[in-house]
Design a binder for these strands. Structure first.
Lengths: 213, 213, 213, 213
DNA sequence: GATGAATGAGTTTTCATTCAT
DNA sequence: CATGAATGAAAACTCATTCAT
């Protein structure tokens, strides 16, 4: 909405020179295309039209560059839009499950995945190999987002809308189907929004029915 | 059940010397731990207690070794046990959806994922970067498995057991939740089978309800 | 005695801005700690709280900075206090050897080594690799100090106080034991002046006896 | 005497290929000429007529190469010939001080410094900057050689041959003048053995007189 | 004068692959 | 078949120096 060109928000970062921004932008491209380990810093420099040494003035190692790309996405994945949703549900006891799930999914998709598709891809690919990133995600996402979602699930179970099962199990199903929606986006060519809208509806419908008591 | 030591079936391969087997076994370990691109062939040689050059007598390049690891899993993912299931359904029109989904999931889990966990992990990580593997998966899995599954889905829709939606959409939901089950296994510590059994039941239940008309 | 804070006399240099002084001071630290070749100019800038480029406004190269540090010490090592001593001996034929050696050692120690310990250390470490510095030392020290000392030794030999041997050999023994005194100061912890005083006496005694006829 | 070509005993090392030996030999040259930090591994490779990567197959880092050069010298500096000397003195209470000092100096010179001049030079230059080497020298030399020498000094003091002073002070004078002898060898061109023989005699004479009661 | 971003040549190190033994 | 020393191309990173602001 604010940003009409859905792009990885390299532009967000403050106090970066043009060249530094170009480096981030290039790294985003190459890391997501070829993977972190397969990418040479010389390639990044080439694409950013920058001397190779320039990269290392700002980021001391190649890995620092990776983390600089991935950290803002992790933060955005969780923090800003989240509060409203769950609080909305918390305050409005009537908010029904489909609305909750749809707004949860849609916000993540619109604010994170559509804007930072390359960074999300890098995150998914590299998280298995970088303890620092795992930690970051755990600290940020797990300790912030997860408790709130578990609470919400608990409330829906109390209201008889979600079937009896460990709340963690329900959360897993919720998350997996969200991830599946995204991943299918990677495989399918990035065509019309219509499709994605329909896909969103269908997935929400599926999840709500699947969880129902 | 059949195989008491659930291990990646390096042993299955015929006509391999001890050293070759050791190399495959070591590569399986290291590739799955550190990723293909991050793994040095010298490390594989070290773990296999083999000279560095020995690897290249059997596999001309490092990539050949990767493909040698991943190919059998792709084949096993699809071919042998599959036929019965879907044919069973095909012949027995009464076979209900829960039974179908459960047997589908369970077979995959037991015959592929439990036996070849490292190879599956490598496959998931590397498929994005290796056209050869993508092609292999497409040729084998997609052209074999997918049509059968789409047929089955179509039959269930005709019988009113699965809601109206593109069969591909239903397939995606089916697959994503299967994958989600596995992935959660990677994160959670590999504890008791009971849990996994319960998880399987729950997932099957969820999927069946979610797909229901 | 004259200078209560025994420090490398960066402060002596005239016409230097605060920043320039800070740079010299920082370079003195780092060069003596890590050696010239191992020291990055950026590290000097950091320690001097100065921009990286600032160093090169005053000294065109890193090597110029080294020479700027080392030159004054070389000059002080020789010129100012020396005249009196040897001239005293020259005029006062009665001056005995112990007094001569003691005053020679003490002056060097007090006026050079105590005040410029880091610069002396740098000089010792780097002289082997920089022809410019060797030349400087030869021009200044060798051509000034050495002839005077050889003369004095000759006089003591004529007076029968120093044994027959080439004057250069006697000079070497004199210098080596002076250097040894200093070097042992580097190894031992820098404790009380008393010790050093005793060490001085002992070394003088040793040298005088050793040289005696 | 035993070894007609006084060379750094790279040849001593067992189980090294020709190329590995060439690398050590080249490193010995370049390190001693230009200093460790100023030497590029590419230069070593060039002089050894070897690919740069070859260096790192045997020594994991440039520093490992340095230590490989310096370690044997440290060991030889202390261990093998030492026993006889001091034990000779221990058993033969009549052994006079000049004989002891001369044999001590001569053995070190002949077995270490003449054979490993470049390695000794490297050792002297680099020891200040490498804790590993300091430790090695402390462990080997200090804990082995020093106590024995202090004992010997004590005995000579008891016999009234060495003046009263802390035994450590006498040791320092002994060592410093030994080192001075060597160092002067570095400055003077390496000419005839005769000179060095005379120099040795003179230094021994000087030290013995200097230490005398 | 001062700054610090930028450079690019150079440095150490890695590693898949080859090949003589 | 197996070995492991050797290669060389490429990788990540360093750093003295320049120059626009």
């Amino acid at each position: 909405m604010t940003d009409p060109t859905p792009t990885d928000a390299v532009a967000d970062e403050p106090k970066l020179t043009k060249k530094q921004r170009a480096i981030l932008e290039a790294a985003l491209d190459v890391f997501s295309e070829r993977g972190f380990a397969r990418t040479a810093t010389s390639e990044i420099a080439r694409r950013a039209s920058v001397a190779e040494g320039t990269i290392f003035r700002t980021w001391r190692t190649k890995k620092d560059l990776l983390i600089a790309l991935v950290t803002p996405v992790i933060l955005k994945l969780v923090v800003p839009y989240f509060i409203k949703e769950v609080q909305g549900v918390a305050e409005d006891a009537d908010a029904d499950l489909p609305t909750f799930v749809r707004s949860l999914y849609r916000n993540r998709v619109e604010h994170v995945v559509k804007r930072h598709p390359r960074a999300v891809r890098i995150l998914v690919q590299e998280i298995a190999f970088h303890p620092e990133i795992q930690e970051l995600l755990r600290d940020q996402a797990m300790d912030q987002l997860v408790p709130h979602l578990l609470d919400a699930i608990g409330r829906y179970q109390a209201a008889g809308v979600i079937a009896e099962m460990p709340r963690e199990a329900a959360l897993r199903l919720l998350v997996v189907n969200f991830a599946g929606m995204l991943v299918s986006g990677y495989f399918a060519p990035p065509d019309k929004d219509v499709d994605q809208e329909v896909e969103l509806d269908r997935t929400v419908d599926f999840v709500v029915k699947g969880l129902s008591a």
